[in-house]
């Protein structure tokens, strides 16, 4: 029997208003994300995967449907409660890192640690991602890979149940991308976070426990990956 899903989406729809036109992005998504698993959602550009991630992370609301986290339907939450959900349970990693340029690596992580009750101290979080020697570097003094590791440290320092990574290797070369992915896999193994990664690079999906393919706003396929590959074994 499958364990209880961490997140359960039922008939989730999302459309955007572009002037007078309504553009449907998600057209009825049913999806379950399980605790402690790495789920990779892949699909082409414009397939709706970022929107799906945003809804799971509580930064966006569905136009219709239900998003269950434990016994709460995120779709019904008020802004304040949704913020509370993100604050306590979700860590985000973005394609372009979204670090604050005027803060150092340590301070960027502290942006996260200051709003939760029992965080991993910024220095420790940065040590976990191998940046213990770059604590006081500003983003402009770091490579893309290093910046993404700071972003990961910022996400994990909150001890989130869910780590949501939006194209975490999208802005990196393959070599650096692999370092970042190894790190995520190691954190999943060591800390047991549930990780959702969205990517348009299909080989990355081979790292996941569960692979979700999305196409034109619908789930095309969900498969449990029986033959997970290691980071060294994949290339894109």
């Amino acid at each position: 029997m499958n364990p209880t899903p961490e997140i359960k989406l039922q008939s989730v729809k999302k459309s955007y208003q572009m002037g007078e036109i309504t553009v449907p992005v998600l057209k009825g998504i049913d999806l379950e994300i399980y605790p402690g698993e790495i789920t990779v959602i892949c699909g082409a550009s414009g397939s709706g995967k970022s929107t799906l991630l945003n809804i799971v992370g509580g930064v966006d609301r569905p136009s219709a449907g239900e998003v269950w986290f434990e016994k709460t339907d995120l779709a019904q939450l008020k802004d304040q409660q949704l913020t509370e959900y993100r604050r306590s349970h979700v860590g985000f990693v973005f394609q372009f890192y979204n670090l604050i340029s005027t803060l150092t690596a340590r301070e960027n992580v502290q942006v996260s640690t200051e709003i939760v009750s029992d965080p991993i101290p910024a220095e420790e979080a940065l040590a976990l991602v191998g940046l213990e020697d770059q604590l006081d570097y500003f983003p402009s003094q770091m490579s893309g890979g290093q910046q993404q590791r700071v972003a990961i440290a910022r996400a994990l320092a909150k001890r989130p149940r869910l780590m949501l990574c939006d194209e975490p290797t999208g802005a990196l070369d393959a070599q650096t991308g692999k370092i970042v992915l190894s790190l995520l896999i190691r954190l999943n193994q060591e800390l047991g976070n549930t990780i959702v990664i969205i990517t348009h690079a299909t080989p990355i999906a081979q790292l996941a426990h569960r692979i979700v393919s999305i196409s034109s706003g619908r789930i095309a396929k969900v498969e449990v990956n029986q033959k997970r590959l290691s980071v060294e074994e994949i290339s894109w």
């Binding site: 913020t83 959900y85 979204n98 709003i115």
Partner: peptide, 16 residues
């Protein structure tokens, strides 16, 4: 704008 978005995504309240 992106910083504001990120802070919101990280769980900062609007008032903060």
């Amino acid at each position: 704008r992106t910083i504001i978005g990120t802070l919101k995504a990280l769980g900062y309240f609007d008032r903060e």
